[in-house]
Simulated assay, not measured.
Amino acid sequence: MIDAVRAQTEGRVDWVVSGNADHAAGYAGRYGIANWTTALEDALADDAVTSVYISSTNEKHFGQAMAAIAAGKHVLCEKPLAMTAEEASAMVVAARDRGVILAVNHHLRSAGSHRAIRALIASGRLGRILSLRVFHAVHLPEHLRGWRLDDASAGGGVIADLTVHNADTVRYLVGEDPVSVVAETASTGMGKGVEDSAMSVWTMPSGIMVFSHESFTHPHSASGIEVHGTEGSVIARGVMAQDPVGEIELVTSAGRETVPFDKSGLYEAVVRDFELAAATGAEPAASGADGLKSLQVAIAVREAARTDRRLAVTYGEVQ
């Protein structure tokens, strides 16, 4: 993300904030950041700071974002937006009332691969969409382990980490919000007190069926998306990634064809759209409202698995 910020015309990283002074100082030194602190208010008091990127553990998102919004700073927050829908909704309202941008780093919708799939769906080449399969069962990289695997109070677990991504991806691709979900979760070797694998089936308003599979424990799997319609199918492999990689194949009665897509950096695109939104008031790639809805889907998946029943996904109105 530092490289993505610095890739922008006016992108600068002026401060790093951490709860650990040694970590903050070392991080600032490694990445050439002029200022570091353990007190968020120090960075927020700097008039040269116009925006804040929040990448702390999930339980800190709400307090840090609300402080930044109150200080009149634009906010790009990691997913999930918050721990609860109530917190996320309050963040959306606060940003709107303060007149600042609240964006969420749902980077997958900024991938050229996902934009290409969305364009195919919108073009009608697949006909009426019948179903989607999102397979995001991977092996959690070593550098991302820790609280994601053993700390529910910090927002650990595969649902908070990957189901929210899948929810945003599906919403982005078909332009609909799931209305109900059924789900199962498990701890299959890595999760300690949190789920490390989940499967769920979602129903969309149009009748589209969605199967979502996410896991931290699959070292030999490949991620991807399948979209199946009455006139064709899209098979996309390796596209649920942080890098612009993977391949897309369109299958119709005419045969199979490879679909080209833009392979620019995902995070550069996220920050570019965020910077444009901050400058013009336009919508970022994924807004706070998008982050709220993906969180609400993830919460419904967790509750459906906990209660062994189909759950309606409740969104409500942001007041």
Rank of each mutant, 00 (worst) to 15 (best):
A222E: 12
H220L: 10
M199T: 15
P205F: 05
H213V: 07
V210G: 05
E195H: 13
G191L: 04
V239D: 09
W202E: 11
S206A: 01
K192H: 12
E214N: 08
A241E: 11
V182W: 11
D196Y: 14
G238Q: 01
M190C: 05
G207D: 12
S187D: 03
S221L: 06
S215E: 15
S180T: 10
A186Q: 09
I225M: 02
T188A: 11
A198L: 11
I208T: 08
S200D: 13
T203N: 15
M199E: 13
T188W: 06
G189L: 00
A198R: 13
G191F: 10
F216V: 03
G193S: 12
A183Y: 03
W202D: 02
M240C: 08
A241N: 11
G229C: 07
G207A: 09
G238H: 01
A241Y: 06
P219D: 06
S221D: 12
G229I: 03
S223K: 00
H213S: 05
S200V: 07
E226K: 01
A198S: 13
M190N: 04
S180P: 01
V179M: 10
S212P: 09
T188I: 11
S197V: 15
M199D: 14
S233V: 01
A198G: 10
V201G: 05
V234E: 04
S200M: 12
P219R: 04
A241M: 11
V210H: 10
M190W: 14
G229V: 06
I208A: 04
G207E: 08
E231P: 03
G207Q: 07
